[in-house]
Computed example of a mutant assay.
Amino acid sequence: MEAPLLRARSGLRAAASSSSWHSASTAPALVSLSPSPTPTTPSSPSRHAICRSSTATRPAASATARSFSALNRPPPKYPGHVPLTRIEQAGMALGSGIMSLLNPYRADLIATLGEATATPYFIYRLRDAMLAHPTGRRILRLRPRISSKTLSIPALRALPENSVGRAYVSWLDREGVSPDTRSPVRYIDDEECAYVMQRYRECHDFYHALTGLPTVREGEVALKAFEFANTLIPMTGLSMLAVATLKPAERRRFFSVYMPWAVKNGVRSKEIINVFWEEELERDVDDLRRELGIEQPPDLREIRKREREEKKRLKEMRANGF
């Protein structure tokens, strides 16, 4: 009588134990809070199902990482932005570099070269230089633009003769250029860095006015050497390769006069990207040069004029038998 009773009690205990373990293993809140691993049995499909699910999602994540291609571009980050793959960026840098070397007056190619070679380091260095300067930070916050719509050209012509604004507009008139010729930035991904490149591009004519260098090829190469020493933008350094296209006399003058001037002044002067030109228009231009640490180079336009007159005089002397 006692033996059947003991066997019945043992069966009840086993059933209760089995029911308790099953409840614990299927309660999600307890599993998520328990620090110990959840027991599994060979018949349980949960672990294999998790492994299959994890394996199945890997190709999708990989496809997402490789989704940026020439046929599948991400959306633009600002108006006019064109995202590029690394291969496209390298090809554009090479092509625009070769073509701009053959024709240094193609401003669109030079602009493309500047954008293609400014990342991933150099444009961020220039942006950080602005962030480290109080005026530079204010420029980044306000984001002014330089064009004939933001600057009154007639008002600039009415400024005192030695003012920054008068020097700027006099240079524009003498060279026959306009502040509206600068191409918009398209190929730099970071929106703030795109503005930094646009600001550098639109201030380029102020650098011409400050130094007095003309837009002839010799003057552009000299100014690019100065800009490279000051900004480290690769395009400005690569543009100096155009010195190979100069005439022998011009090349000798560049290496003996303008290259030393560019390195000396570009390195020692303050970061010219931090000049708020719109607020300096009425200031004496010589005073601004002293503050920035920039000395004017020899007047290249006057040198070239004297050379032309000398050649003309020698030609006339030969024609007269002297």
Rank of each mutant, 00 (worst) to 15 (best):
P134Y: 03
V177F: 06
D108P: 01
H204F: 13
L71M: 10
R157T: 09
E175R: 05
Y187G: 05
T112Q: 08
H208I: 05
F122E: 14
P79L: 13
T117V: 13
S152H: 09
R174K: 11
A111N: 01
T85R: 04
S152E: 02
R199Q: 01
I98N: 05
I123T: 09
S163H: 08
G97I: 03
V185E: 03
V169S: 09
L84Q: 08
I146G: 07
Q89G: 03
A129S: 15
Y187F: 15
L172E: 09
L140W: 12
R182V: 08
R157W: 06
F122T: 08
C193D: 06
R201H: 12
R127I: 10
T119M: 08
R86G: 05
R199D: 01
S148E: 01
Q89N: 12
L109M: 07
Y207L: 12
I153F: 10
C193H: 05
C203K: 10
S147I: 01
Q89C: 07
H208Q: 00
R166V: 10
Y168S: 10
A132Y: 11
Y121E: 05
L156G: 08
Y168K: 11
R141V: 05
H204D: 02
S148N: 03
D108Q: 00
L151I: 15
E115K: 08
P160Q: 06
A158C: 15
Y200M: 10
R141E: 15
T85H: 01
